[in-house]
Nucleic acid binder design. Structure first.
Length: 290
DNA sequence: ATGTGTTCCTGTCCGC
DNA sequence: TGCGGACAGGAACACA
């Protein structure tokens, strides 16, 4: 469940289980995801208190306290890749899920917290990532260093985007997927954004007009905000996963709707699917002009 | 530098 | 029911 709204939903779901709580035990069942887990991960987590949970792009960042009182601790970085899920279970006064007590296949890391919650990182395809970042080193971390502005933040605006797209001969679809240009968008929300902005995904980024770019900024923000409000999107029938309460998938206007009618009032178009840079693009050939 | 294609891995679904 | 192939929400990497 991996684009920005899903990650934000997962982060929010982890707050009652983790924030302010001490990690009593950490179990590593598998030594590697996309890359090897940090050396001594379980030991470095055990005994630490989770001070706060943040999100940057599609990454969840957990600020830990240090082993020495008053000293800053490491930051736990979590990335879900394509298939990653974070499950929350445990006896906790009903504050969160209680229905996933049984270990499943691909439960790679399990964290037990003060208060009785168990947080499980499950990722069948192992495209996800877990890392520990030294205090103050977040800005130089290879996975975070080159990421562009948060789309819901002040740094993402039409002038900025125009500057980043100028002269680019790549399709706008690819440009919006590029995390260095804007953080957090993935295949679904790019498709939905381009539909709402009335822009054909094949148009070259550098050929967009100022009006196109202004609409893109508006629609990126609107789609993401609506999706977060809906708790993200749930594609497959992931039972028991935190964050799968999302229902934004019912609001998709183009994603996954190949050969279905366009939902723009009065439009007789049919949603098309093409492949761009190896991934599916869904769009209405009538509403979204080349 | 910029743009494109391949690759990592497992699971599911669809057509024969 | 089995089997093969296409496809899946990401992103790093190798190459032209």
């Amino acid at each position: 469940m991996p684009e920005l709204p899903e990650v934000e939903t997962v982060r929010a779901g982890l707050v009652p289980a983790m924030e302010g709580r001490r990690i009593l035990k950490a179990t590593v069942n598998r030594p590697d995801l996309r890359f090897p887990l940090p050396e001594g991960l379980a030991d470095r987590l055990t005994g630490r208190r989770v001070l706060s949970l943040r999100r940057r792009s599609k990454y969840i960042l957990a600020d830990l306290d240090g082993p020495v009182a008053g000293q800053a601790g490491e930051v736990l970085l979590l990335h879900l890749g394509m298939s990653g899920r974070i499950l929350v279970s445990g006896r906790t006064l009903g504050a969160f899920h209680q229905d996933h007590p049984v270990p499943e296949k691909h439960d790679h890391v399990v964290i037990d917290l003060e208060g009785g919650a168990r947080v499980t990182f499950n990722d069948a395809r192992r495209f996800g990532a877990i890392d520990l970042i030294a205090p103050g080193a977040e800005g130089e971390h290879p996975l975070l260093r080159t990421i562009g502005p948060e789309p819901l933040g002040n740094a993402f605006h039409a002038d900025y985007l125009a500057g980043r797209l100028a002269g680019r001969r790549t399709p706008v679809k690819a440009a919006l997927l590029d995390q260095r240009i804007v953080a957090g968008l993935g295949n679904i929300y790019v498709a939905e954004t381009l539909y709402r902005a009335g822009i054909d995904p094949r148009r070259l980024a550098g050929a967009l007009g100022a009006d196109d770019i202004a609409r893109l900024v508006t629609e990126v923000r609107a789609v993401l905000a609506e999706a977060i409000e809906a708790g993200g999107s749930t594609l497959r029938d992931y039972r028991h996963a935190d964050g799968e309460l999302g229902y934004f998938q019912h609001s998709f206007r183009v994603y996954g709707r190949e050969r279905e009618p366009c939902r723009t009032p009065g439009c007789k178009g049919t949603i098309a699917r093409i492949t761009q840079s190896g991934r599916s693009s869904f769009f209405c050939p009538v509403c979204q002009r080349p």
